[in-house]
């Protein structure tokens, strides 16, 4: 990791440069009179941040060229939107119910995902889906999840209910 941070590969520099420049162009949206000063300034700043921060990028730039991953990424966005809506109706029901029906606890689940970005995406998805919130990730691939309505404390059962919603999609996107 230290070596990667000191000497980033050229593909990572290109990757960070592209993403930074795209975000910059999004912020200076009205293109109609082309503003060359803005574009040149953005390119220079993107180049500097690519060289300085390229080693910190954990995504593999070459994998980003595969269009199949973008198809599964679109599926992932729709699945996430659906589960976020279900989660919000669930929270609204629990909060507005006079007795506040909760049964909380921290359970342990196992994930098969290996890469750091896939684990991060899985943890964030778990936080946004019904009744669960990631508390910590251990190095051996276990996640500690705070569950607002615990139905099983066994590792396998909890894994099937909590992780199973997203793991297969994220494996296709990131690995």
């Amino acid at each position: 990791m230290e070596e990667a941070a000191s000497k980033p590969k050229i593909s990572k520099i290109v990757f960070v440069f592209t993403v930074t420049l795209a975000v910059w162009l999004l912020f200076t949206w009205p293109f109609a009179p082309v503003n060359w000063a803005m574009i040149i300034a953005g390119s220079l700043v993107s180049l500097v941040s690519g060289i300085v921060l390229g080693g910190l990028a954990t995504l593999h730039p070459v994998k980003g060229l595969n269009p199949v991953r973008y198809f599964w990424g679109g599926c992932y966005v729709f699945a996430l939107a659906w589960w976020v809506m279900v989660a919000n109706l669930d929270v609204a029901f629990r909060v507005l119910h006079p007795d506040v029906p909760i049964n909380p606890g921290i359970v342990k689940v196992k994930t098969e995902l290996k890469s750091e970005s896939a684990k991060t995406a899985l943890a964030n998805s778990i936080t946004l889906t019904p009744g669960t919130m990631t508390v910590d990730i251990s190095d051996e691939g276990y996640l500690y999840v705070h569950w607002i309505n615990v139905s099983s404390t066994e590792v396998e059962e909890a894994t099937r209910e909590v992780v199973g919603r997203f793991e297969w999609l994220l494996r296709r996107i990131f690995e």
Binding site: A87, I102, P104, I148
Partner: peptide, 19 residues
């Protein structure tokens, strides 16, 4: 306001406020 401890509060409010 209504949920009992810090983990439940964090869980419910983060989901709803994000959406």
């Amino acid at each position: 306001i209504r949920l009992p401890d810090v983990y439940n509060r964090l869980q419910g409010s983060t989901k709803c406020v994000t959406l």
